[in-house]
Nucleic acid binder design. Structure first.
Lengths: 132, 132
DNA sequence: TATAAATAGCGAGAGAATTCGCCAATTGTG
DNA sequence: CACAATTGGCGAATTCTCTCGCTATTTATA
């Protein structure tokens, strides 16, 4: 028997998506160059990955221009949310808060970032009050 | 050519680790039963996975008792940190704060959780002050 | 417009992640 | 002790991910 396909983008797919998230649109060549900063693979590989990702509907392709332009099918945010949701269940025992706290302790946050977080907490609390 | 092995535990591996994180130690049979709540696989599969995970040093095995007892080689926290670090780079463009904020908006947080987060932000801010 | 260069598509291949069946070793039971 | 049940191990089969080579098509250039 065999395993079922993972629902999350794979490593290489994520590398490609990152390029698309950063640039909006890009040709296969451009994607290859940018991904290649970290990975040394053949141009064919990138093209093939793009065609696989097209099948999986992870990217969209604009054929009306040449060379074709690719763009991500889902935003960075949306993809991140999906992956976080998954990780909360699989590693953090269902606690998004535990995950958030641990993420915060990864790196020293700047004062501005801390302020931003505080503002967000205020908003969340307001929502709680409204709900009561 | 081929791809390199992922550094993060796979799906099934995480399912097994979760059992071990929850229970501390467990026999192959126990692990199988508990994992099986969500997955329907053969006992052989679980045993095989455990032997693979032993090779990868994801779990430890106590052979002095029968049946053998398994336990996770790394804590939930440590594994989570590693995976979050990875995700911050691969999806959140290096921003742990962005990841944390998005995690918070996944589910409505309780007032207690919000308070806990606030306390943590206070601590982080103190550290910043100390560093100046 | 020939010819070179780049783009696009496909099939095949290596290796990773799972899956199980089968057998040996160990333990439990009458 | 004989026999049944459980545990543990291994190889093989399957599917997925990622890799590239080869070829056709399209575009750019002399």
């Amino acid at each position: 028997m065999a395993r079922r396909t993972s629902q999350q983008p794979t490593e290489v797919e994520l590398a490609i998506l990152n390029v698309l998230w950063d640039r909006g649109q890009a040709t296969a060549r451009q994607i290859h160059e940018l991904v290649g900063v970290q990975r040394e693979t053949n141009y064919s590989t990138t093209v093939k990955m793009l065609s696989i990702m097209l099948e999986k509907e992870l990217v969209k392709r604009d054929d009306s221009v040449r060379p074709q332009l690719f763009q991500a099918a889902f935003s960075r945010k949306r993809t991140g949310t999906k992956m976080l949701r998954d990780m909360v269940e699989k590693v953090f025992d269902g606690s998004a808060t535990a995950l958030a706290m641990q993420a915060l302790s990864l790196k020293r946050a700047s004062s501005a970032e801390i302020a931003e977080m505080r503002a967000m907490l205020d908003k969340l609390e307001e929502q709680n009050d409204d709900a009561i």
